[in-house]
Nucleic acid binder design. Structure first.
Lengths: 353, 353
DNA sequence: TAACAATTAGTTATCGATAACAATACTGAG
DNA sequence: CTCAGTATTGTTATCGATAACTAATTGTTA
């Protein structure tokens, strides 16, 4: 190992391994033709010297840019920043640069931002966060410029690019099932933004879980929501004003769930004694709230690291996409916190102003 | 202008300007000796070709890295991500790369993370967000490696490095003054994390504004807080349980202010009719809340862009630091929203469970 | 005005990697 | 065993910029 401060170069590795620099370079490339013997020699030299290629030199010499764009529209700051931090770290390790950009507005604007970014940096890859992951025009454009695309939780054209997600359906199913096991029968659901595919899956998971236990769902128990706090306030107020309010509210994300808690408290009920509340995403608000919010945790760091890894495993070219490369479904965790409890034996209190 | 897709190089500029590439290079450097005539020729050629230097080539050829580290400890995700987005954009424009890293834990850990980053990337500059901006050991280390440092809202060794902030004192003063003008006399304050310098300034602004109007502050009206939602819940509950609760609560950040709103609602009072609430920072929660929160907006994008600009204006070397380069105090904005109203004529309701 | 500094501009080598081509080492068929 | 054909490895030029040196120009002073 060279004395710290000085980084070792490909020349050092080549000398130590007793091969040419090209052989080292080839050992690093995913699809190069190189003998096993050389590869081993090079690999051990790399380890010994703790060598890592100089990105700038690479970028200059090759036609690749090693830039990966992370494009998002308007998911919550928390969602984005959680995703970023894992992706950044992984990028650094693998010699990529992450370029984060917000694509706002209508389709035209979004496309313009993407084009601009591309003109400026010549992206090698792009990661699309919801709801951009389902923007067909954007995907078309990126693929037409032969930019590798990885989508997070897409709902459309599932097999067109590799994607990463959790099983939203199953998560919602299990949460609902759990509430039922705690004795809840009157479970309401606050839907998410219909533009985001996962909303549909979460709703369906809830519905199917209810039906699987032979529970019927009153129409009014499924409320419209849009992933915003405000929409959660309205939806939860609607639910509490029903003649028979629910004993549990399952919201499609944490912002709406925390709005539900606020409403419940404001109307003189308490969480979880009177009404249990569950959210989705495990965003920071879930633990800043009091009572803390039970929710579904997505493994954001794993997801973002996985996304970057996909780029490094050779070019993601459409023909070579095997199913196991395309589908990357990671495990969720149900975070049980203070906001849920067994159903109250009887709920006959009246709300008081 | 070259046909889009192809970027023009320094050679193109040199040819068009009728000079050598070195002259172009020098025209771009901050302290190079070059005649006005050549500089003008080069500049117009650069404009015509829309030339922007290739960062990789630069990094390879020079001893600079063009990496700027953005180090933060644990300010809210919202604070960091707002800062990042401006900084990223500016970096792209000026040919830097922003490397974002979280430095957690005790001083030793923080230092280790910074050293690691430095070994890996050889930073040209570092931006320190609070509370890292006041970590003397960290600043010492970075300066000792001759990394340019820009600090955000520092409280210690103010003149050691350039810094960027708003006038927290004045903002707090004006907010308090505004509440007083609305007829509030019983104004309480929830303090921020004492590790963060701005906390002290915000408190002092509040105190001085009260005194300037000859209002006295009951001891119990100044509550301990730590910038967290939970600490805001406790502090506000304390305030509402006083025999004469305040008619206005000013919290040193939005998280605590929103906790205050939650407590007020839970105890059967309403905002702003019974009690006005003001926060600080204009974080996303301020507008997701209902009622929306009046607060002080820091110009985060301006701050982050300014920070990056400082690096590009030649090396920030300690000797050349004039006062006007060091101090960068930007303007805040008081965001008046739904959570404040004139003081109630009389507050004689009792809280009801 | 000649002689010498000080400024400004140009030339060449270099950073660390890969592309494209050239050379060599293996392989199996005849 | 030889030779074509393939698999592997090496050589040289190159990416786009700057450092370090050299050359030319300008300005100053005796």
């Amino acid at each position: 190992m060279k004395n710290s401060g000085e980084r070792s170069t490909i020349q050092d590795v080549a000398k130590l391994a007793g091969v040419s620099t090209m052989t080292v370079s080839r050992a690093l490339a995913p699809n190069a033709s190189i003998s096993i013997k050389s590869r081993l020699k090079v690999e051990s030299a790399i380890n010994e010297l703790n060598y890592r290629p100089n990105v700038s030199a690479r970028r200059l010499a090759s036609d690749k840019s090693f830039f990966i764009g992370l494009l998002y529209d308007n998911p919550s700051a928390a969602y984005v920043s959680q995703f970023i931090s894992g992706a950044m770290r992984k990028c650094r390790r693998l010699g990529f640069h992450l370029v984060v950009d917000e694509c706002n507005g209508d389709d035209e604007n979004i496309l313009a931002t993407a084009k601009n970014l591309q003109d400026e940096l010549a992206l090698d890859g792009a990661i699309l966060l919801p709801p951009l992951c389902d923007n067909v025009k954007l995907v078309d454009y990126l693929l037409s410029r032969s930019i590798s695309v990885v989508r997070i939780a897409p709902d459309i054209d599932i097999n067109r690019t590799p994607y990463i997600c959790i099983n939203d359906y199953e998560a919602a199913f299990k949460v609902t099932e759990h509430l039922i096991k705690l004795g809840h029968h009157k479970i309401a659901f606050i839907k998410g933004d219909p533009k985001i595919g996962a909303s549909r899956l979460r709703l369906q998971g809830y519905i199917d879980a209810m039906h699987s236990q032979n529970l019927t769902i009153a129409d009014e128990y499924i409320q419209y929501g849009a992933f915003t706090y405000k929409s959660g306030l309205i939806a939860s107020a609607n639910l509490l004003n029903l003649s028979t309010p629910p004993t549990a509210i399952f919201a499609a994300n944490d912002d709406m769930a925390s709005a539900a808690i606020a409403t419940i408290n404001r109307l003189g009920f308490s969480v979880p004694e009177d009404i249990s509340v569950v959210g989705f995403d495990d965003s920071p608000i879930a633990t800043t709230m009091w009572p803390s919010l039970s929710t579904v945790q997505q493994p954001m760091t794993d997801m973002s690291e996985k996304a970057i890894e996909l780029f490094s495993q050779g070019k993601i070219n459409p023909e070579a996409l095997t199913t196991d490369r395309i589908r990357n479904v990671l495990n969720f965790t149900i975070m049980q916190r203070e906001s849920i409890a067994p159903a109250p034996a009887l709920l006959d209190q009246k709300k008081q102003p």
